[in-house]
Simulated scan of single mutants.
Amino acid sequence: MASLLIRTLLPLLAFIQGCLVLSSKIVGGRPAIPHSRPYMMSLQILGNHVCGGTLIHPQFVMTAAHCINRIHPALMMVFAGVHDLKNPESSWQSFSVQRFYTNGYDDKQILNDIALIQLERPVTLNANVQVAPLPKQGQSLPMGTQCLAMGWGRLGTDLPISDVLQELNVTVVTFLCREHNICTLAPHQRAGICFGDSGGPLICQGVVHAVDSFIKDECASQKFPDFFARVSLYVDWIKDILRSVEQEEKKEDCQSSGSP
């Protein structure tokens, strides 16, 4: 039974990591200072990193919808406090998944490519694990804004993923972009996102403004910008989910304690 499950999952894992358009990486970046991005999460299947995510609440991780599309929650583990994927540290915290939330994801048009992962228990917040702030609903991000992309994705289209978290300074651009996306380029260099970084954050002015969604052509081609899902379109939806879960947990606590 176990071998059958592994044979079933391995092609799916390869699809997630190698999808031509969706799974992204950092090309031409630099290693992040260890634990300097404490909101960064690693989504893993069978012990393999498949996507990034952002901690936005002690029990919720924001990622790309395509990262969890067609995946059963029981198959995924989420890791916090990670810098080097190959070198476990005392800072690591691991979590199974309680539930996935999506908002009308369209995999053909790559629309609404955002998802929430409810962890089976809250993380322990400390110096190495922190929550990233969200933008305001509808908040714009002007062209030319300087941002930071990050992830453990491939270091080149035909290269393996990075064991160490990489980051890259990028600039918001509007050419060839779509209204519901935020697009970026790394000016004057062959650098950008690529396979394995999907779901990771785009941090601008200290706020997680976008989620790594997709690329066109090859990684860091400079022919097209890199595409991110615009988080400000979904802030009310996110807050509604967080509020409903908190209310449900309070109700369960009251019932278990016998309070009216």
Rank of each mutant, 00 (worst) to 15 (best):
I110P: 01
Y234M: 02
C147T: 10
L134N: 07
P73M: 11
S244R: 14
P260F: 10
C254Q: 14
C219Y: 04
R178L: 13
L75G: 00
G206D: 08
P34C: 08
I203A: 05
L141F: 05
A186H: 12
E249S: 06
I110M: 09
T174R: 14
S232P: 09
P11T: 12
Y105P: 01
D197G: 06
P31H: 14
A32N: 05
L134S: 08
P31I: 00
C204S: 08
Y234H: 15
T8H: 14
G81R: 10
I26W: 08
G153Q: 05
L10G: 00
D113L: 05
C254S: 14
L10I: 15
I193W: 02
V27S: 03
L233V: 00
P38D: 13
G138H: 09
V172H: 06
Q137P: 08
L148Y: 07
C183H: 04
H188T: 01
L119H: 03
R178G: 02
P11E: 11
A149Q: 03
G28V: 12
L148D: 03
S259E: 09
L116T: 04
K239D: 08
S244L: 12
I110L: 13
L55T: 06
L43T: 11
Y105M: 03
L5R: 15
P260L: 13
G192Q: 02
M40S: 09
P58Q: 11
A64L: 01
G81F: 08
H66G: 03
V231L: 07
S42V: 12
D107N: 13
S221W: 01
N169R: 06
M76C: 10
I16H: 10
N48K: 15
P34M: 09
P160D: 01
V231W: 10
T124I: 14
G199W: 10
S232Q: 07
G258N: 03
I203Q: 12
A210N: 12
Y101P: 09
C219I: 04
L116A: 08
P160G: 01
D84M: 03
C254F: 08
T124K: 12
G81C: 06
D226V: 06
G156Q: 09
E218W: 10
R243F: 12
I241Q: 13
F60L: 05
F227G: 00
C147E: 07
F175V: 12
R190K: 15
N126T: 08
H57Y: 13
V27N: 03
T157C: 00
Q98Y: 08
